[in-house]
Structure formats: C-alpha cells, structure tokens
Simulated scan of single mutants.
Amino acid sequence: MTWRMPAETAPHERTWMAFPREGTTLGAGAAEREAGYAAWAAVAHAIAEHEPVSMLVDPSETTRARRMLSSAIELIEAPVDEFWMRDHGPTFVTDGERLGAVDWVFNGWGSPAWAEWERSAGHARLIAALTGAALIPSDLVNEGGGIHVDGEGTVLLTETVQLDPRRNPGADRAGVEAEMTRTLGASRAIWLPRGLTRDYDDFGTNGHVDIVAALPSPGRMLLHSQPDPAHPDHAVTRELRALLSEQTDAAGRRFEIVDLPAPATLTDDHGPVDWSYVNHLAANGAVIACGFGEREADSRAAAILAEEYPGRDVVTVDAREIFARGGGIHCITQQQPAVAPNRAAGAQPAATAGGRP
C-alpha cells in the first residue's frame, strides 16, 4: 500500500479547524481574547462559503462558539488546548481508494515552557475516527505547517524543524526523508536551511515552511519576498531564493519561482513581523488569503494568487490577529481531500458528539 498526500489544490471534502480557548496563546485581556475568537470565526465563515467546515470546540467554549459561528459550520465538542489545526491535527493522505490520516507526534513545537499541547496532541486520532480514515502512526515529531507538497512526490522541509533537537534529537535527513516517503509518498525532499526571523522567537515554530514557500502547481513555487533591506528577512529570503532556484522537483523540473512580496509593515511591539501572503489556504474554488490592512500590498498579493490559482476566487481575510498569536490562515486550517469511495463529498463526519443540533 502506498500512501500519497494530495496537493492542496486537489478537491476537498472539508476543512478542519479548532476553536480558540482561553490560555496563553489567545491572550490576557478580554479585548485581546475577543479579537482572537473573531479572527478564527472570520476564517471559518470565509471557507464555509466554498466547502464544509468542521470545528473542534473545547467544552469550555461551546456556548461562545455557537454564538459566534453560523449554522453552516459543524461543531464537534472535544478537548482543546492549542488551536492550530494544521500542526496538531492529522495530515490527510490517500492510496487512491481510501483516506488515511498521518498522526505525527506533536510536542507543542519543541515543548516550550508556555505551550499547552497535550489535549490537542490527540486530535489526529480523534479526527481519523470521525472520518473513518486509516490511522497512520508516526514516531516523527512534526507538524503540518512544517511540510508542503506538490502532490507529485515533492515535499518541502526545513532543517530547523524536522532536525530540531527539541523535536527529534539525533535525527538525520535520511531518516526524515524515509518517513516522508512512507507516510506522504514523497520521492524528493527539498530542505530549506531556515525560516523567517520572527519564527525563532519564543512563540515561533522554529522555521515552518508554510509561511515561506508554497507549491501552487507542479514546477511552480510561491516564495515569500521581503523587499525592504531594513527587515532581517530581506537577507533571509534572498538567500532562500538563490538556493531554491537551483533545486528540482520530483519530476526533475527546476522551479519557476514567483515572488510574493511582504506588506510594508516591518515591525510591531515585539520586533520584526513575519506577515506573509504565502500562508494561504487553497479551498474548493477559492483561495483564502491573508490580509494585513494594507490596500496596495493586499491587492497585489491577491492578484498574484489569482494568477497562480486560475479559476479560483481570492478571498482576503484580515489575518493580523492570527499572526499576533504566532501564525496565519494556513496554520489554523487542515484540508481533508475528497476520496469518493470513502464517503460522499460533503458528508458529515460519522460522530459529532456535542455538535450543533
């Protein structure tokens, strides 16, 4: 049996998310917390215009979730601490007939002191059971935001993520690549040496690729570009572009790299920002794109995304409150590919304990 992770542009059955709950990540004051809830809800509603959305909700947040989310979004009551579904949820794969769910080991991005992750570490198993997917356990500490595929055998990785000693002490490239072959069907791994500067702060992921690069179609790469020399990522992205321009994909093609320029804002109260339009979700018939309240930059990014994803509507959602908590739209979503023999597209999960009546 060969499992393969489809490209994000392949048809989806649904998108999975987790509703925020009170804690360090959400914020301290009432206004800060409300802004976080509202940002997650806005993304869910934007996606729900194009495909079903299932939302895991901690019992402590069920009343709020029912108030803030429309009836189009299915609520499933389950224990939640962290709510970055891309990272602690399953990575879905298929063998052409069946749906599989890779259950990476999740340790809160290297087990930092502030992270609460033990509850959400069980979400891959829970969602596999709800969807009827075959569970594919892995001993690798990894997150969905730390990988990106083209659906044809190419996977993007980052040395400071999969080889992070806080995640996988003693791991080497060969071992990680073998696991990517087993779980994702990857035959060609491309290693980035690092990620964006802000991602190495205390609340960062230590270099997730899904804020740096994306593969909108085989042979093409969207790459975050920081054009301002005053930002440390100007040098980082220039070096990454030089390296990636020499790489080939699983089919032996050299990448056509398309720069996706960062917005003009360089800093916030905590230092250089990592605002990135690369961190978007390709949904059914749409691209759910990050916006940063900058009309010119947001419009430029939307135009580039429209060109790279022909036939899809580009829907821009303000992502500043998500980035303030450590990620973007791609980080809080996880697509479930449509696999016709498994269940009809659009069907509801088999079990919805605590869901909307």
Rank of each mutant, 00 (worst) to 15 (best):
A262C: 06
L305D: 05
M17E: 09
E34D: 14
T94M: 06
A134N: 08
I211N: 11
G311L: 00
A10Q: 15
V339T: 09
G328W: 01
D139K: 11
Y200A: 07
A283M: 14
L243G: 01
S54T: 15
P218V: 11
R98V: 13
V93P: 10
A31G: 10
L266G: 14
G29L: 13
P59F: 08
R254W: 00
D199S: 04
H224D: 08
G346F: 03
R194H: 15
F83C: 01
A344E: 14
A306H: 09
A41P: 06
E51T: 12
D172A: 00
R220Y: 06
A345L: 10
D298S: 08
A250L: 08
D228M: 02
A178Y: 12
L135D: 02
H270V: 15
E307H: 08
T197P: 00
S70L: 05
D81T: 13
R325P: 02
A242K: 12
G108M: 05
V273A: 12
Q348K: 11
V155K: 03
G110I: 06
A324D: 12
P59G: 14
F92M: 14
R343G: 10
A347R: 06
S71F: 00
D274T: 15
N279H: 04
A134F: 13
A129S: 15
G146W: 04
T131F: 00
R125S: 15
A48Q: 09
L135V: 13
A35N: 06
G204A: 12
I147C: 14
E97G: 00
G170R: 12
F83L: 11
A124Y: 02
A338I: 02
A301E: 07
E34T: 03
R325G: 05
H231V: 13
M17K: 03
G96A: 10
A186I: 06
R21G: 09
I73G: 03
T333K: 03
A48F: 01
R64F: 00
G346N: 04
T158N: 04
I288L: 14
R4C: 10
E13L: 11
S138F: 12
P357A: 08
T181Q: 03
D150W: 12
H148D: 07
A303G: 05
G170P: 07
V176M: 01
A174L: 14
E256N: 02
V315L: 05
R64L: 15
C331M: 09
F203Y: 13
H231A: 13
R182W: 11
N107P: 02
R119T: 08
A124R: 00
Y277L: 02
P218Q: 07
R300W: 01
I329K: 05
A44H: 07
A303H: 03
I304G: 05
P52D: 14
E32M: 06
S138P: 09
A7N: 12
E34F: 01
L126A: 04
